[in-house]
Design a protein around this nucleic acid. Sequence first.
RNA 1: GGUGAGAUAGUCAAGUGGCCAACGACGGCGGACUGUAAAUCCGCUCCCUACGGGUUCAGAGGUUCGACUCCUCUUCUCACCA
Length: 399
Amino acid sequence: MLEEALREIKRGSAEIIDSDRIEKLLKAYFDEGKRYSVKAGFDPTAPDLHLGHTVLLQKLAIFQKYGATIQFLIGDFTAQIGDPTGKSATRKTLSAVQIGENAKSYREQVFKILDPAKTEVVFNSEWINPLGASGMLTLTTTFNVARMLERDDFDKRYKSGTSISISEFIYPLLQGYDSVHLKSDIEIGGTDQKFNLLMGRHLQRAYEIGKEQSVLMMPILEGLDGVQKMSKSLNNYIGVADEPNDMFGKVLSVSDELMWRYYELLSTKTLSEIEALKNGVADGTLHPKKVKEDLALEITARFHSFEAAQSARDEFDKVHSNNQIPTEIDAYSCNGDVWIAKALVDCNLTPSTSQARRDIKQGAVKINQEKIDDEQLQLATGEYILQVGKRKFAKLKVN
RNA sequence: GGUGAGAUAGUCAAGUGGCCAACGACGGCGGACUGUAAAUCCGCUCCCUACGGGUUCAGAGGUUCGACUCCUCUUCUCACCA
């Protein structure tokens, strides 16, 4: 039982620091029913969760299964600084109202995966604000610039001549201080968070709270392009709130290589089951598309329902395999004869008439399934199905 | 605080008075081939009912028939020195 729990917890992880302690915590749970805490921090600027976030959430859910109380930390204070991890982006400061709304939307989405009874939602402004200037000063004396610059992000930016704000040095310190305040036993995060996660250990030692958290890092999930990490700003994400049809379609659009990555990090299938699928594809007994379809079904069903996932698959076959029109398309209407380029813009199929002309010239535009090549075409009264490329459809009624 | 360098389209990056709506690369979009996969090949990539017109090269002025290119100021960034 303990063995199995450990295996499940370690599955897919990229790196674990002080895994002996995790083992001890688990043992104490199994032997004496003693609970422990696992911390994970989230940024309230991005309440729209995508599958990248769920890698962590699913890991947290497994911890909950084995005696952990989750400290679900919403970094409302630290959001004012902006995590320097990865690219630097100017953050807009959020009002208390916005943060409240975002936190609410977090709850709705997160509890599709986590058990609310074993989760504490906390905000770090609660303890960071009372720190005051002197508390902050004490915090900064625990670390030095040279070590700060060892951090890969900072090092690269420093060497390449990109600016680093002093406040960004504060960010890891505050994240670490969260672990001091919460007395976390374990913290989990992405591998890109390594520096910040280790800061928790450093500060727990400096503040002598009598323990140092273990750290479990999960790999970063690649986005649909298979190269960059999944993120909303890169628009290569699958959102947990995406419609079933979108979700299914997006999973199916990933490359075969990336599919295995998604299986590893997102599927609840066991490692040996996944291995069997790989062998099947390798020796030709399984079609890779079928395997991908199963994954898409599993993921879609997780956030919607099994029925919704199945109808998404049927819809997909209908549109893409049989080249039919989707069941539901956005409908628009307008008056009088309309110039085709204008119509495409009005139906949000194209961002400008210039783009519309180009698309027509390139044979990307279809009206009622018929390819057109006349840029000057006027649409007379009637109903039309407009299509640009393979995926964009709209229904237009000309009065 | 001083000195020097720099800011070009989604990103990187050419252009140092007219040939510039601005080379190239990446990304993105479209087409062919497919399994809406990958790879490959081809085309497109500021806006406008368009063989023409309009707005762009950090911002504001100026010099010039003409400026992304020269000058002044402003904002921001980096390097070295303090």
